[in-house]
Design a protein around this nucleic acid. Structure first.
Lengths: 153, 153
DNA sequence: AAAATATAGTTGCATAATACAACTATTATG
DNA sequence: CATAATAGTTGTATTATGCAACTATATTTT
């Protein structure tokens, strides 16, 4: 029982800490170069995948499909992305970076490098990999727990 | 250069993973027992601290003070918390749990124990502590990086 | 002590994110 | 072919959020 209690106490602190730390990725705040975190995630996904469909973004962003539509809108309006009907499935749309979008993506990526270098530099030397792997393991644990439990639904 | 690039690639994935995993703590979604994550954090902070002032919550929640006011409102309206002028500083208010608030806090805590047990159970046996410490280290690294860099402001 | 400054908290305002439900169009399955 | 499933959009309502302006009180400076 003590053990469980301890786990809980630590875990709530970890969750609070995560909420505090990830505030820098908050949606409405410009992350880098006038682009929000979600917007960069979208640009980056499109940059890394040819033929990325809108439906691929739902799980990446972990939002409802209507939210994906609305997160996409400003990027389309700013002319950073193009939407074209998929040839293999005419319900779907394929996303591409425009020239402007490629430039923006590159610019923001450079900006992020600075931030990520700082984060990495704040980790104990020689332990970066171990720590990042531990964080990934923790992320998986949360996802699996949410899956079966749907996070206290 | 390669190293930096690798760090960035991994870090963006970690940040995306965090955004996905912490979606279960999203503000507007009931976390446990009809209470959102932030609401639980508030209840928990009040439960653990006598004489907790509203201003103590700003940093805990990592939000602007006006947002604290507004996150508090539903809890006050539901009669889970009491607000009383501090005797030591009559600008400030001290928060207390009501009877109802104590019951709710206890109920939600029990609900969270289930979730946290599942999370802990998904971590490799014998490595829970190490992993949680690594996550805490990572959180600190982000916070420090945001501090000097204010997250790409 | 008076004046200037800082802090605690609230409210007006505007905006972003978000989900759910209902809808259209298309594809897949019985 | 009929039914069900999927891709995506839009209407609607709610929550979260920050900034700026404001009141009231406390602290610091002169």
């Amino acid at each position: 029982m003590k053990k469980t209690k301890d786990n809980q106490v630590e875990l709530i602190d970890v969750f609070v800490g995560l909420a505090q730390a990830t505030r820098c990725c908050r949606q409405d705040t410009a992350f880098c170069g006038g682009v929000t975190f979600h917007q960069f995630v979208i640009l980056d996904a499109v940059a890394k995948n040819k033929e990325l469909k809108i439906s691929d973004l739902h799980s990446l962003l972990a939002v409802e499909k209507s939210t994906t539509t609305r997160l996409l809108n400003p990027l389309l309006a700013k002319g950073l992305l193009n939407k074209a009907k998929s040839i293999s499935d005419s319900r779907a749309f394929v996303l591409k970076l425009t020239k402007n979008g490629r430039e923006t993506h590159h610019r923001v990526q450079t900006c992020l490098e600075d931030f990520f270098s700082k984060v990495a530099g704040n980790l104990p030397a020689g332990q970066q990999e171990i720590i990042l792997q531990a964080v990934q393991t923790f992320i998986s644990a949360i996802k699996n727990a949410s899956g079966t439990f749907n996070c206290c639904s």
